[in-house]
Amino acid sequence: MTTDTAYIRDEFVPERPAPGRAGGPIMWLRANLFATPSDAILTVLGVIFLLWAVPPIYNFIIGHAVFPGGTVEDCRAEGAGACWAYIYARFNFFIYGFYPIDQYWRPNIVFILGAALILPLLIPTAPFKRINAVLFFLVFPVFGFFLLSGGVFGLSYVPTEQWGGLLVTLIISLVGIICSIPLGILLALGRQSDLPVIKTLCVMFIELWRAMPLITVLFMASIMLPLFMPTGTNVDKLLRALVGVTLFASAYLAEVVRGGLQALPRGQYEAGASLGLSYWKRTYFIILPQAIKHVIPGIVNNFIALFKDTSLVSIVGIFDLLNTVQAASSDIEWASPTQAVTGYVFAAFMFWIFCFAMSRYSLWMERRLDTGHKR
């Protein structure tokens, strides 16, 4: 026989205080800023530093700044901050350089078409990827060059010496980034090759270009290279800079990609060979997708460094964004105590916009492609 028994409490448990809050701003401050005595000291020091640094920066950039609509006398006044009226007045020069004013529509079309073609390539779900890639990598460069330089279809000729500002910065960085990718991948594969001749040539190329600073490469391309050319041969200065930047960037990119290739287990190579795939097919379909996914941070880091290093072309007389800012700082019409500083702040902000965008896109791609350990 089964007997059901039950326990009935005959005494109540004493009341206890309600549990403390597990969230809210107070708990966040305790957990992140005042968890230990050292954290509290660092927090206090950080607050003191911000109270010391932020007000002057705010007053210079916004509080005491002279915005568009102001005059040069306002910028020269005592205690005036950034002269944004000067940036507004010289904005076209910072973007287009010495490009003819009545022809601004040509670089504007190039800017619009470039953005319209590159944005779908950056969106994985966008349709017509192959057509878009062909248009951007093959058609757009040719169309953009003839549209900017002119001399055909009734367009007035504009030599590259008149190109400048942000236009030249974007041209050099985009050409260097796009052209260095396939060249860097081929150099990385060549360095991993079992053929001694190919491996030696790739190693020599990579080590040679990595041993030279970019400024030396630009000087060689701009000053020394014409001395080795046949008499009467004249190679465009911008083209020489583009070739030098591309070769320099490809050497660094090759080492980043090689790190990704070495990180793959040997079984991936053997699996591709066991399927009967040729070297190029297993490299294209199996090896490279995995290797490049692992080294996305390094690749984007190289791209960001290359974009910032384009400012070095100003040393060889190419009017990129930084060089136009430096040239405009000698403008007597807008001469003021904060003229040069305002120009450099503007240039730094422009560089920050593009570098920050590349960094954010890199992080987004890393999260999207981080599927190796998900279940």
Results as ranks from 00 to 15, higher is better:
D4T: 06
D4A: 09
T5F: 12
T5N: 09
D10K: 11
V13L: 15
P19Q: 13
A22L: 14
G23A: 11
G23W: 12
P25V: 12
A31N: 12
A31C: 09
N32F: 15
N32Y: 14
F34C: 07
S38V: 11
I41P: 03
A53H: 11
P55C: 13
I57E: 12
F60L: 09
F60T: 10
A65M: 03
G70H: 06
V72R: 02
G79F: 04
A80D: 01
W84S: 00
R90E: 07
F93P: 08
I95S: 00
Y96D: 02
I101P: 12
Y104L: 14
W105V: 07
R106D: 03
N108V: 05
V110C: 09
L113N: 01
I123F: 11
A126F: 13
F136V: 02
L138Q: 14
V142Y: 11
V142F: 15
V142R: 07
L148W: 00
L155G: 01
Q162A: 06
G164M: 01
V175A: 05
G176A: 08
G184N: 10
G190M: 03
G190A: 05
S193L: 05
V197Q: 06
R210N: 13
P213S: 13
P213W: 10
L214C: 11
I215E: 05
T216D: 08
L218W: 07
T231R: 07
G232Q: 03
V235H: 10
G244K: 04
V245C: 08
Y252E: 03
L253M: 06
A254S: 10
V256S: 01
G267H: 05
K281G: 03
K281I: 08
I286P: 02
A291F: 06
V295C: 11
G298P: 01
I299V: 07
N301Y: 12
F303L: 10
D309H: 14
L312G: 03
V313M: 08
T324D: 10
T324P: 08
S329G: 05
S330I: 04
V341M: 10
G343Y: 01
A347V: 09
A348N: 11
F349D: 06
F356P: 08
L369M: 15
L369S: 14
G372V: 03
K374Y: 13
